[in-house]
Design a protein around this nucleic acid. Structure first.
Lengths: 230, 230
DNA sequence: CGACCATTTGATATGGATCAAGCGATGTGG
DNA sequence: CCACATCGCTTGATCCATATCAAATGGTCG
């Protein structure tokens, strides 16, 4: 299963917020070492499944590099993408025993895989770890609520929101390198690829963005985009 | 603030799953009394605000009778209902310090109001309480994820799903007494009242339901509805 | 019983989907 | 290193589901 056994990436910073560690509770420091032992970085090629819907949720995943998506396919073939995960993001957190979405690598990706049972055991003795797990669920909830608000908007509002959101997450010197395809964006926003493409062209014509290549978006005037998002 | 000071409804069963209580951890039993003291049932008339978006999230709410809705209004006036809460449901759980949605009574309602800081203090000493709080967040997440899947479906699929969901939650002898208006349903499903009404008429013509009054839905053939939900 | 408000029903408009080419970037083999 | 094939994206034409606008009906409450 594990493509590598090197554990160096599984350092103590593998858990968000863990670095604060100003609450020396019992087990917290002792278990930090265990964290390193139980996490392993794995490589997933582009478009390869990380886990399937209804599989046992035995692991948590933290993106090191690349990107991942979670999704669900309805009986008639429509696909809904739940979220995109970029370096630093954690996914695969579940309340029940099974994954409710499937997950795939959007691009070639390195992902830190953490055993859930070990996390649970850790949380049972360390309130801070338990709190972090709760926070992760809470952040997913906020993301899902924002997603709901996105899906009631018009096509141009959805696409503008998406561009701005990605800009906040991965902007680098005025540009965004989109890891995902138009189909991915469409399935996230509940639109067709044609509509996504038309909206981007529209934004380009309005001088809000530039598209040197399909995946590269230059932000030329984000005020125009912000005025569109309702 | 409190319309009544009677605490009788704030018994130890006010917390879901708490009744199992087969983990006599420190503080658990001692704090059970505190729970009674900190929860108070309040009465909210129909359409009255329970809390507003961006207000400090100092309390949790458990519906005793009646119904509540959470919602957000976009700048242009569109309203999105996040969820409906019926007797037994808990709402107002937040990760941050502020409510991200507003809440109102759908009908005259009695709602148990629990101080959040007290819950947090309790959770700090009782893993079971902490787990229950986490579970509440997780259940909200699942609900939000289902809501996302609903919003990418067609109008008839959304309305059929809604009727079936409400039936599961409040069916009584083959009937559902809807507490909310058509506008509420429309704002939950991302449709207009006209479309909701037309779909219900359509289901009635297909002999799937009957509508003796607008708020009363008789389930005549739920297989027809199930076949519609994709 | 009467008035009001919610709901239903009808007619028309429209945003985004669908169907159908065309174009361009990427990557491969000669 | 270049020609060509493939795949993903863009652009265009048409259609359809749902919104919008408008009116009629019916349930509820004083």
């Amino acid at each position: 299963m594990l493509t590598e056994t090197t554990l160096q990436a599984a350092s103590s910073d593998c858990w968000p917020g863990r670095a604060t560690g100003n609450e020396p509770s019992v087990g917290s420091l002792a278990m930090a070492g265990a964290l390193e032992l139980m996490g392993a970085p794995m490589s997933f090629p582009r478009n390869v499944e990380i886990y399937g819907e209804q599989e046992p949720a035995d692991y948590l995943y933290k993106v090191i590099s690349g990107a991942a998506r979670t999704y669900k396919v309805l009986i008639d073939g429509r696909r809904q993408i739940g979220a995109f995960y970029l370096p630093g993001d954690v996914f695969g957190v579940e309340i029940g025993d099974e994954h409710t979405f499937s997950a795939e690598a959007v691009t070639d990706a390195r992902i830190l895989v953490l055993k859930r049972s070990a996390m649970a055991a850790l949380a049972a003795h360390d309130h801070e770890v338990a709190r972090q797990l709760w926070m992760l669920t809470g952040r997913e909830l906020q993301r899902a609520q924002n997603h709901i608000l996105l899906l009631i908007k018009t096509a141009s509002e959805r696409v503008a929101s998406f561009v701005l959101e990605m800009a906040e997450r991965i902007e680098s010197s005025g540009e965004v390198e989109m890891p995902m395809s138009r189909q991915d964006i469409a399935d996230y926003l509940g639109l067709t690829i044609e509509t996504v493409s038309r909206m981007l062209t529209q934004f380009e014509n309005a001088a809000a963005i530039a598209l040197p290549t399909p995946k590269r978006i230059v932000l030329r005037n984000r005020e125009v985009l912000k005025r569109l998002i309702a």
